[in-house]
Each structure stands twice: as C-alpha cells, then as structure tokens.
Amino acid sequence: MMQRTDIKGPEEPAAGTGRRILLTRQMPEPVMQRIRDEMQAWINPEDRQLSPAELQVAVAEHRPNALMVMATDQIDAGFIAAMPSSVRAIATLSVGHEHIDIEAVRAHGLALLHTPDIHSNAVSEMAILLMLCAARRAQEGERMIYEDRWPGWSPTQLLGRDLTGARLGIIGMGRIGRIIAHRARAGFDMRIHYHNRSRLPHDLEQGATYHGTAEDLLAVSDFLILSAPSSPQTRGFLNARTIAHLPEGAVVVNVARGDLIDDDALIAALRSGRIAAAGLDVFNGEPNIHPAYRTLPNVFLQPHQGSSSMETRVRMGHVLLDSVEAFWRGERLNRLI
C-alpha cells in the first residue's frame, strides 16, 4: 500500500500561497535535496509506476498546485477533469507530451511545462550506441561470451556492417537529429540524408541532403534513425510499406517513441533478413514489449535509457523545478501552454 510522505522545506509556505507539488517518481538525490530544501511536496515513496487510479487518489488527497509527472504517466481528459481545482500546472519530465491530453489542459486553463533540449546529447549518444551495437551484432557476441559458447576467433564469425562511409537517413531533424548527424559525420564519415516537416536552413544542414518525401529518404538509407516526435502523422511510420523502400539489409534505430514502428512489420523484416538488424530503446506498450523481440538475435534492445545519464537526469530535474518556480512567480519558462 502506498504510504504518505510529506517533504517540506525549512519553512512551510503559508496556506493559500499555492506552492505545493506532487512528484510521481523518485529523482536523483541532487534534485530530491532541492525539493526538500525549497518546496512543500508529496513524493511517491515507492519507486514504481503509479496506476492512474492510484495517482488520482494521491492528487485528490494532497491537493497540490502543480503536478510533476513522467512520460510514463497517462494524463488523459478524464484524469484532468477529476483533478481538484488546486492544480494549476502540469510539469512533465520530458520533451514530448503525447502522454498528456493537450486539449483538456487548455480547456481547464492549466499550464503545461516541459524540459526542452536538455537531453539531446544523451539521446544522441544512445542513438550512436544502438547503431554500432546493431551493426556489429553486439547482442550475439555478448551472449556467446556470457553463455560460454565462444569457440574462439574465426574470420567469418559474427560479420557485421561498417558504419564508416555508409549512408545515414534521419527521420526528424530537430536538435537530437542534428546532433546525431554531426557525430555520425565527424566520427564515421557517414553521408547524412534527412527528411523533416520542412527543410532546414543551409547553416543547420551542415552538408546533409534533404529529401522532400520519406520514401525518397528511405531509398538511400543504409542506416535509418527515427528521431521524430510521436504524432498522428508519424505513428506507425515504419511499416511493411515503408520498409519496402529501404535498401536490402538496412539497419534501423529508434530513439524517438515506440509507436513510430509497426512491431509486426519490423519483426517480420528482421526474421527474413530484409532488415539486417535493429537497435531499439523505445517500444509500443512499454514495459510490455512485443515478446518476439526477445527471440531475435539481430536486435539490440535497451529499456528506454536514452536520457539516463546522471548529469542529464539532474539537469532535467532542475530545469523542471526552475519552470515550476517561474510559473509560481507569474513568469513563462519552458511553458508549452
């Protein structure tokens, strides 16, 4: 059973000041210490995902003025309608906001705060890791070592793909996509191609080739990285039809959102060899991912760890707290609505 934990600063704000927060998950200690020092808060004492019903009970009981939620918290219209009137802001520890009903936020006159651009470097590092590990068959090699099945070196063992000089296609050339492009170009001399809602200014392209349609981009993508936000236009983007446009034996990486991929289509392509390998950090239905992924030797999987470095997570926490405090002062900082 969830226990109540009230964490207050040295001086509790006077009633009616409207500066109480509810935090749905534990954060790294530097962020927690700041909350203890500066705020009146209820913090989920169990480091697990609260169900919508549990979160609703906590909000109703503690009547915060701001919610500090995670990308895994589903804040739908029903949840928002049932919140006490004390709640004036929702702050999400994420760049994306597809887990929050935007129209309901607007309709109830709430503020929506987020953490833009803070995790771009960490996520781009994860994209390079996934690309390397998928291309060089890291999961198969790791299993061979840890399961004590390595027979010794041979010239045809676990032959993978070179990144160096290959064509990299990027879907979504925002800040993360541009950092990925820079690192792939500088580190591996990859030739960068991209598709975006609109073409970037010349100085931001840095020599990358723009493709006006996704199909044109896919046709030249030896490696494909998905870094676009989840939206009605991008959900299910990688499916049987679009996979058919990729070169035979392409490598697919996803650091965006799981719903950009049709799992059944990608799994079929991986089984047939139409797609040589995939590196995935995000999934449909997290944490209950498609079970077939665990059976495939040519997939390198990570449990949504793109922004999981200590430095990045602490920065995200502080930026979100800065945004909440700015909201309380009547200022706009990292505010979407």
Rank of each mutant, 00 (worst) to 15 (best):
154 S>K: 15
114 H>G: 14
90 I>T: 07
247 P>T: 11
98 E>F: 09
26 Q>N: 15
145 I>K: 07
99 H>V: 01
54 E>H: 12
297 P>W: 01
316 M>N: 08
211 H>K: 08
61 E>H: 10
154 S>G: 15
6 D>W: 03
30 P>C: 05
109 G>E: 13
268 A>N: 12
146 Y>K: 15
177 G>H: 00
179 I>W: 01
217 L>D: 05
203 D>F: 03
323 S>C: 08
170 I>G: 05
63 R>S: 01
300 F>R: 11
282 V>A: 01
118 I>C: 05
193 H>R: 08
46 E>H: 14
182 H>V: 01
223 F>Y: 14
320 L>T: 01
231 S>T: 15
12 E>K: 06
275 I>T: 14
268 A>D: 12
35 I>S: 10
53 A>N: 12
54 E>M: 09
267 I>N: 10
309 S>T: 15
247 P>W: 07
104 A>D: 00
154 S>V: 15
147 E>W: 02
154 S>W: 15
205 E>D: 04
312 T>R: 05
265 A>Q: 11
219 A>K: 10
49 Q>E: 13
38 E>V: 12
263 D>H: 07
102 I>P: 02
88 R>I: 03
61 E>F: 02
233 Q>L: 08
133 C>I: 02
64 P>E: 00
49 Q>L: 13
105 V>D: 09
158 L>V: 15
155 P>G: 13
85 S>A: 12
221 S>P: 04
56 Q>G: 15
106 R>V: 11
324 V>H: 04
31 V>A: 09
331 E>Y: 10
87 V>T: 00
169 G>D: 05
186 A>H: 02
205 E>R: 08
159 L>T: 15
131 M>L: 13
246 L>V: 06
233 Q>K: 11
42 W>H: 14
210 Y>F: 14
16 G>Y: 03
178 R>S: 07
219 A>T: 10
235 R>C: 05
208 A>W: 00
210 Y>N: 08
253 V>L: 02
116 P>E: 08
318 H>N: 09
66 A>V: 13
135 A>Q: 03
254 N>F: 00
290 H>C: 06
238 L>G: 06
306 G>F: 03
244 A>F: 02
216 D>I: 06
245 H>Y: 06
120 S>T: 14
66 A>H: 07
277 A>N: 02
147 E>Q: 11
75 I>Y: 04
135 A>K: 08
142 E>F: 04
158 L>E: 14
278 A>Y: 08
70 M>G: 05
102 I>G: 07
276 A>D: 05
224 L>N: 08
36 R>F: 04
133 C>T: 09
132 L>I: 13
19 R>I: 06
161 R>E: 15
43 I>T: 06
59 V>R: 00
202 H>A: 10
96 G>Q: 07
297 P>Q: 06
229 P>E: 00
